[in-house]
């Protein structure tokens, strides 16, 4: 196997307090490797509040600011405004928020930041639930998944609604760059970080962040589950630049979605019919993505947003 070509610098220290196998910890580590020391990160209430370790310590080698859960978009606008007013140049401003803090309670501030074209990178690390508060559902929890508020008990069988399409919502604001990233594919990850770092204007990352605690899998399987997510089409890797889609990991034929679902306790209860429904939805999303890619080569603005799958009971 070829040697990995990742930046050597480490701006996240050992001694952080993430769970073993935490995808969100990997996401931060890889992100900062690429962004470098002149980075200011604003972090809302989420697992990363805790992972960064309590006062007076910090697990980050860069400047970090805490902000309330729903205000990350506004916080990075404020940081950028201050840096501009004080003449500080060559600083990358990053909002690093969970899926709940982004797609649910923080969506207004995110939309505001994108619309007023703040020169900053907004990162949603997506562990698909409110993990810090103990695995409650979020708008990013996928169809069928167990969480503590979408129980598998009595007549309930996990989440009955589909995952909110944050990339489509962000793209409707026409950011200069938006991409999906997965720590299981670190070179693709770093290429996107480098690209985003070199740009100015609003940028968005959706980073896949498996959570062994909340998803119910063995902590050593994080990378394997991440690879399965992309290779089954559950979490395709792509980027959108000036309205042009580019799928950055072409999967010739998708692996069966069962391989991904069966690796996690949160999907254990799904019946063959449920799994078939999830599989159909994933294939549909993948094909739409390929269509966007080929169409946007000709006409850069996406002609239609991906339609949400029907809210079937999985």
């Amino acid at each position: 196997m070829a040697k990995l070509t990742l930046p050597a610098q480490e701006l996240m220290f050992s001694g952080h307090s993430a769970c073993p196998g935490c995808g969100a910890a990997l996401a931060m580590r890889l992100l900062l490797k690429g962004l470098g020391p002149r980075t200011v990160v604003s972090v809302p209430a989420c697992c990363w509040t805790v992972i960064a370790t309590p006062y007076p310590t910090t697990a980050l080698g860069v400047a970090m600011m805490d902000n309330p859960i729903e205000a990350t978009g506004a916080s990075i606008s404020g940081i950028r405004a201050a840096l501009d007013a004080m003449g500080e140049k060559d600083v990358t401003v990053v909002g690093f928020a969970g899926d709940g803090g982004t797609a649910d309670i923080g969506i207004q501030a995110l939309s505001g930041m994108l619309e007023r074209r703040t020169n900053a990178l907004y990162v949603m690390y997506d562990n698909e639930a409110y993990m810090n508060t103990g695995v409650q559902r979020s708008g990013e929890t996928p169809l069928g998944a167990w969480t503590t508020t979408t129980p598998v008990e009595g007549h309930e069988h996990g989440k009955i609604e589909a995952k909110k399409d944050m990339m489509a919502i962000v793209l409707a604001h026409h950011p200069v760059y938006a991409a999906t990233l997965n720590p299981s594919f670190p070179e693709d990850f770093e290429r996107k970080v480098e690209k985003a770092k070199a740009m100015s204007g609003p940028r968005f990352f959706d980073i896949f962040a498996p959570c062994s605690t909340g998803w119910r899998f063995d902590a050593q399987k994080t990378i394997a589950i991440g690879r399965l997510a992309t290779d089954t089409g559950v979490f395709p890797l792509y980027e959108v630049e000036n309205g042009r889609y580019h799928v950055t990991r072409k999967v010739g034929s998708l692996k069966p979605v069962e391989e991904y679902l069966h690796a996690q306790g949160r999907f254990r209860h799904l019946t063959p019919a449920n799994i078939a429904a999830v599989g159909a939805q994933v294939r549909d999303g993948w094909e739409k993505l390929l269509t966007f890619e080929s169409e946007s080569l000709v006409a850069p603005t996406p002609s239609a947003a991906p339609t949400a799958p029907p809210a079937t009971r999985a």
């Binding site: 200011v40 940081i79 201050a82 007013a85 505001g112």
Partner: peptide
């Protein structure tokens, strides 16, 4: 900074103030 709510307005100045402005 033109914002979409008062909540964001105060967050913008809180973060800007935290940077020293």
């Amino acid at each position: 900074v033109q914002v979409e709510s008062e909540h964001s307005a105060l967050q913008v100045v809180v973060s800007a103030s935290g940077m020293g402005a």
